[in-house]
Design a protein around this nucleic acid. Structure first.
Length: 302
DNA sequence: GTCCAGGACTCGC
DNA sequence: GCGAGTCATGGA
């Protein structure tokens, strides 16, 4: 196979491939990549063309094998993986904070090396966040899979079908009824198509949002869009725009995690949720992500 | 049957 | 500006 290339991405000391793999493995309904034998296979688009790559742990970092020729493709895949796993971030300040903080300590110790796994594509992040509003994560995965399998581009390799996330352009032209058939609620269908149209029209871009600067400005811009409330805006800031401090304070999973680590006999109130996070300022997205992870690892043990 | 899930909108006051 | 009702599906 002459069109394969290898790429070794060196990872920082505070990166754990198994911890991130564990997070990526959390749903059998995940459709944007496949995991087998500790190897992750995924299709992405680089310069408008589909590229398939496999990543696996290596003594020196992450070994990536990709299909496609040329340095541009290789660079595109490397950039994607770096963004996906937030490899450019130094977590030492967060770990020092975690050691001092009784609410975070156990989560940080247990899952050290975990990154806020990102969703590099803006449209995908919005769709995933909107689908996840008010329903269980498990059901959100089912809805995402239906959506991707129905509207995404399929790429077959070695008997396995991989998907590119549906483009905003394609979804912009859909009727809400087409999403309703997948059991996505009518309102969410409208939200998703509305966002797709803004993105397809170039009125909403990742670069444009990043250029706004601080989180509060982005949140204000996003919550002006129908279907985007404070939770979704902060979720997008965390997973796509890479703010380490975004804080989805209304998140039910966060509330349950805080109830657990703070030893409460009820869920915390919103003021309490804000107060708990006061010492985490600068790292609230990381704190949230670790608490989510901690909560799911606790509930797995029954 | 009831309640809850990684919320947001709409309406009435 | 704030509280209650509504959306809609699926699992416990």
């Amino acid at each position: 196979m002459s069109n394969h290339q290898e790429l070794l991405i060196r990872t920082p000391d505070d990166f754990s491939f198994p911890e991130n793999l564990e997070y990526l493995s959390r749903s059998a309904d995940e459709c944007m990549f496949h995991i087998q034998d500790s190897r992750v296979t995924r299709a992405i688009e680089v310069d408008g063309k589909p590229v398939l790559f496999v990543m696996e742990e290596n003594p020196d970092g992450i070994l990536v094998t990709l299909t496609g020729e040329g340095d541009e493709v290789k660079a595109g895949v490397e950039q994607f993986v770096r963004d996906w796993l937030d490899l450019g971030r130094d977590l030492m300040p967060f770990y020092e904070l975690g050691e001092r903080d009784p609410l975070l300590r156990e989560a940080v110790r247990r899952h050290r090396g975990l990154r806020v796994v990102g969703i590099p594509d803006l449209f995908e992040t919005f769709v995933w966040a909107i689908l996840g509003q008010q329903i269980t994560v498990a059901f959100a995965y089912v809805l995402k899979r239906r959506f991707v399998e129905t509207f995404g581009q399929a790429i077959e390799a070695d008997g396995v079908i991989h998907y590119l996330f549906p483009s905003a352009e394609k979804v912009a032209g859909l009727d809400p009824e087409a999403l309703r058939e997948l059991k996505i609620t009518g309102r969410k269908s409208e939200y998703i198509i509305g966002i797709a149209r803004l993105i397809a029209a170039g009125e909403l871009t990742k670069e444009g949002l990043l250029a706004l600067g601080d989180d509060r400005t982005v949140e204000h811009r996003l919550t002006a869009i129908r279907g985007i409330g404070p939770w979704t805006a902060n979720y997008v800031l965390m997973r796509c725009l890479r703010s380490p401090d975004a804080y989805p304070a209304a998140d039910v999973g966060l509330h349950n995690a805080l109830k657990l680590v703070a030893g409460l006999d009820r869920k915390p109130t919103l003021p309490e949720v804000e107060a708990f996070a006061e010492p985490w300022k600068g790292w609230r997205a990381y704190a949230t992500f670790y608490l989510w992870r901690y909560l799911s690892s606790e509930s797995e043990q029954g």
